[in-house]
Amino acid sequence: MSIQKWGGVAAIAEASIYLFGFVLFFTILDPSGFEANVVDEASGIAINGLTLDVAQRNLLFMIQNRDSYFIGYLVCGVVFSFTLLILVQAIYQRFKQSFPELMIFAAAVGYLWVGIVLASSLIFLIGLGAITHYYGLNPEQALTIHRTLSIVVEALGGGIELVGAVWVLAVSYVGLKSHIFSPWLHYWGMFVGISGVLTLFSGLSFLSTQPLFEFMTAIFGLGQILWFLVLGIGMLSETSIAESVSYIED
């Protein structure tokens, strides 16, 4: 199977992984409805009859659903990263003829995105075990580790979507200028990419409380589902047409 066909499969797989992640983390692993009582069934630790606050409740929910979180990050982080690696290589091979210098830059950014997502996922998987261990020894210490882990993972894996957004923007620009695939795919990719770039400015004090940036993050995540899906279909369709033409000529 050609690298472009592998790339098409990878793109559709990325869209599927995104859908899996949204369903898992926003429905099945939503801690908002979790009513923790005063005793942690996982560790048997009594909490003196006090109601848990939000942070403690979320921590306890994560520990009690440790395996689900592990599988979620394994799929949405580790599998996503290696699948993205295939797609970045396939896109580079397909687009490099028209803008070779820009595609070298785009490929480098794509590989950087792979590394960042993979690193954040592995950090979470290791941290999940540490949190569970320390919760049985000192719940407050486990809560501190959890907060620290959340900052690190968020910084690398989704709080700011700059790296992935730049890759999508570069690919969309080259595709549009080179007339590769549908122009609407690349217009959509540029919209998604710009939304991701805007998340960079959420740290400014006068913008940090604005809901716009949460909206931009949602657009980048949800918008990529459609972008990956249409991109994958385009790559597979183009490959099928090329193979049919080659077969007729032979």
Rank of each mutant, 00 (worst) to 15 (best):
M1N: 01
Y134G: 09
L50V: 15
T51F: 00
I151G: 06
I3G: 00
M190S: 10
A11F: 07
L102Y: 11
G175I: 07
L19G: 02
I131H: 05
S68Y: 03
V197D: 01
I180H: 00
I104F: 10
A36L: 07
F34Y: 14
L60Q: 14
T199I: 12
V79Y: 06
D250E: 14
G44S: 09
G164I: 03
T83W: 01
G21W: 03
I194E: 07
A119W: 00
I71V: 14
G136E: 08
S121F: 02
D53Y: 03
K96R: 14
G175A: 03
V171T: 15
Y247V: 11
V75S: 11
S178I: 13
W167D: 12
F215L: 08
A119M: 12
F82V: 10
A10K: 05
S208M: 06
I233S: 05
V109R: 01
Q210L: 15
V54W: 08
W6F: 07
Y134H: 13
K177R: 10
I241L: 13
L19K: 04
V166M: 15
S16K: 05
I3K: 01
N37C: 06
L85C: 13
S32K: 10
L52I: 00
G33K: 13
S244F: 09
I86P: 02
A170W: 00
G129P: 06
G196D: 11
G157Y: 02
I47A: 12
L60C: 06
V117N: 03
I28S: 12
G127L: 01
F201L: 15
I194K: 05
Q97G: 12
A155E: 07
G77A: 03
V78T: 06
G196Y: 01
V152Q: 12
I17F: 10
G175H: 03
G158E: 03
K5T: 10
V23C: 09
L212H: 12
I91A: 08
D250I: 09
F20H: 04
D53N: 14
S182Q: 11
G189M: 02
I3R: 10
V75D: 11
I145R: 08
L198Y: 05
F181C: 11
Y73S: 01
L185K: 05
V166I: 15
Q141S: 13
L149H: 03
H179I: 05
I47E: 14
L74K: 07
G196N: 14
M235L: 06
L102N: 04
A55N: 11
S237G: 00
T217H: 15
L52R: 13
A165Y: 01
L212W: 09
L102K: 12
E249K: 08
L60W: 12
N58V: 02
F82I: 08
L118A: 15
Q56N: 12
Q56P: 02
C76R: 06
A218I: 09
T83C: 04
I219L: 15
F82M: 08
T132P: 04
F228D: 07
S246T: 03
W167S: 13
V152N: 09
K177I: 03
S121E: 00
L198G: 00
L143A: 03
R147D: 13
S240R: 07
L204Q: 08
L229N: 10
P183F: 02
E154K: 10
